[in-house]
Design a protein around this nucleic acid. Structure first.
Lengths: 268, 268
DNA sequence: GAGTGGTCTAGACCACGAA
DNA sequence: TCGTGGTCTAGACCACTCG
């Protein structure tokens, strides 16, 4: 993986002053459900820090000892909460250095589904925007994104290729309220990865997603774009992506060449 | 804050003297890698209890307090080890009752992949054995199962259906050394589920598995059995199943009707 | 009421990374 | 050398299940 796996350099390790931090942290804890165990409430409070961007991707969160003081909990309890967030993939602990906010870069999740013939390591596939428009979304999409009845959405068509050989075409819907900046961004400035653009231009961090897979046969536009004969098998991936606060951010439907599909699962 | 008695000079490193009532448990701990953290060694020791069938599926394991005494560790450390095994799906904790060895029943994993039209709840699909033979396995299978060069294997062909409509056909390979009893079991006594038979007749418990998915087009025998036109898309699932000790037990390749395939993934 | 796992504390010492 | 997270202890009290 050649992209975005960099860790925060020690120079970027920014620490907040406890004085400025303390009032918010206590509010954050007070805002959680008091019937829950303390470690769950701490977890919720930490997620709130992530959602509010007080803790930012790539940066270190306060040390465990500091969190103990700030939230008035014992170190074992604080560690329990952090451990859960690390299991969720939101935080990353590094012995001797600290605990960091993970930069979620699972655009590379395509590697889970599609092999590409390039010898050696994984590269990010090319991503070319074919079209952009602003319009009312289909009801399925609008409901999934929990959009207001008459709210418009940005819709992108995108073709992904390895070495200029297309293997996946995507249809992407984004609520205009959150992503207005993307409606004006020159198409040339969309790179190969979308989620960093969401972060940079719209302050929206994708923290998790749910995908649904099925198999269909290629027709019409999809067959044309993927250069497939009508009837050839394609894999359909529908994805709903969420922010730290679990609110839906993006709806996406992708069609990929089934011949290049593969997936590994561990069952326990 | 508690009202406990405080010692002026703690710093006790006193190891509990091994109780006379637990000889095997201490052996089990001694057999683990002493360079590992204690909670990892405990986990390995507990897995050994599972593999040796001293702890059996469905039964309760000793209480946390008993394990503390038996292994000379603190309750937090014992809990840590148990927690890991619960996350792995090997144990199941029930508040107020105890911790139990899970009966791995992920034959139902098919429900992850194939929808069936039956209204309401999930039922186990029918499984009919079409053939059984004993022969040398293909090298790919033999190597996956880590079999000796000239060792023979039992091979089963099996057709799975809902309401007598087939949707999946399977080719299953088992090393004869472990599964000799299955070569003699009357075909009528194979039920709809295989793994319980492995357990009952051969003392082999499937604890985990790795699956590889891809998409192909139906040909020959597969097309016939699934009643598909040649060229229709099928999903290919290759599974390698493992025991508690991670040794491979079963190799399986399944072909399923792609139209009925679906799969949900959560990404983080 | 006895026993279980669930939660929580308030420390200790350690290995490791960075300066 | 100092600060970090990793490991571990030796308890406490709680909610829950079961007989």
């Amino acid at each position: 993986m050649s992209t975005t796996t960099r860790k925060a350099s020690p120079a970027r390790r920014t620490r907040r002053t406890p004085a400025a931090d303390a009032p918010q942290t206590l509010d954050a804890l007070a805002a959680t459900d008091p019937r829950l165990p303390l470690y769950q409430r701490l977890k919720d409070a930490f997620v709130a820090q992530l959602a509010s961007r007080r803790w930012r991707p790539g940066e270190a969160i306060p040390t465990e000892a500091e969190l103990c003081r700030a939230y008035g909990a014992s170190i074992g309890t604080v560690r329990h909460a952090i451990e859960l967030l690390a299991l969720d993939g939101l935080l990353e602990k590094t012995p001797g250095r600290g605990t960091f906010v993970r930069t979620p870069s699972f655009e590379g999740s395509l590697f889970r589904f599609f092999r590409h013939r390039a010898g050696g390591e994984d590269r990010v596939p090319q991503g070319r925007i074919l079209s952009r428009a602003v319009r009312l979304p289909p009801s399925e999409v609008g409901e999934s994104l929990r959009m207001a009845p008459r709210e418009r959405a940005i819709v992108l068509e995108r073709l992904r290729s390895f070495d200029d050989v297309p293997f996946l075409c995507e249809e992407i819907w984004l609520p205009q309220s959150r992503f207005a900046a993307l409606a004006r961004l020159p198409l040339a400035e969309f790179g190969n990865l979308l989620y960093p653009q969401y972060e940079r231009h719209c302050g929206q961090t994708v923290a998790s997603a749910r995908e649904h897979l099925s198999v269909a046969q290629a027709r019409g536009v999809v067959a044309d774009r993927l250069r497939l004969a009508p009837g050839a098998p394609v894999v359909v991936i529908e994805r709903l992506a969420f922010g730290y606060d679990r609110s839906p951010l993006e709806w996406r439907r992708s069609h990929g060449i089934a011949e290049r599909f593969r997936y590994d699962v561990d069952i326990r």
